[in-house]
Simulated assay, not measured.
Amino acid sequence: MLKPRQSLTLTLLQAREAAMSFFRPSLNEHGLTEQQWRVIRILNQHDELEIYQLAELACILKPSMTGVLVRMEAAGMIHRRKAEQDQRRVLVTLADKGRASFASMSQCMEANYQRLQEQLGAQKLQTLLGLLDELKSIKR
């Protein structure tokens, strides 16, 4: 009888939780959820995105993304606007408060990355990131 294969998806989820244990305390200190931080970080890199693009990049389901953005807009962290050429398209940008959150979190998050790297090792971390990028690029 064949021995069951280790579950890739379960192992990835468990690894995500282990990695988040380095970052979650900082998010809690700054009053941000993981989803809000992903939105802030991605918008900081891309300036302006349509909601569906943001949801895809942040790995947040579109129905959940709507609630996240409503709360972030109410908190003054993002702006939403309809595209001029197509009123059905909604574009999202960081507001000044969102940019300030990114700036205040960046140093803290970098320190968390350094702690993780110290435990795992720089080469292993780079190898892991490379392997994960390869996995993401595999077509179904």
Rank of each mutant, 00 (worst) to 15 (best):
M1A: 11
P4E: 14
T11R: 13
T11K: 10
A15T: 15
A15I: 07
A18G: 09
M20A: 15
S21K: 11
F22L: 11
F22D: 05
R24Q: 14
L27K: 09
G31Y: 06
G31W: 11
G31S: 12
T33P: 03
T33M: 02
Q35L: 04
Q36K: 05
W37S: 00
R38Y: 02
R41G: 00
I42A: 00
I42V: 15
Q45I: 02
H46K: 14
I51R: 10
I51T: 15
L54M: 15
C59E: 03
C59Y: 01
I60E: 03
I60A: 03
I60W: 05
L61H: 13
K62P: 07
S64D: 07
M65L: 12
T66M: 07
V70D: 07
V70A: 03
R71V: 00
R71D: 06
R71P: 00
A74K: 13
A75I: 02
G76Q: 09
G76R: 06
M77A: 04
M77N: 06
M77K: 13
I78H: 00
I78R: 00
R81N: 03
A83L: 11
Q87D: 05
R89W: 02
A95E: 07
D96T: 10
G98W: 01
R99V: 04
F102T: 01
F102A: 13
S104V: 09
M105Y: 00
C108K: 15
M109P: 00
E110R: 14
N112W: 01
Q114R: 11
L116H: 09
Q117T: 14
Q119T: 05
Q119W: 04
A122Q: 11
Q123A: 13
Q126D: 09
Q126K: 13
T127N: 08
L129Y: 03
K139V: 10
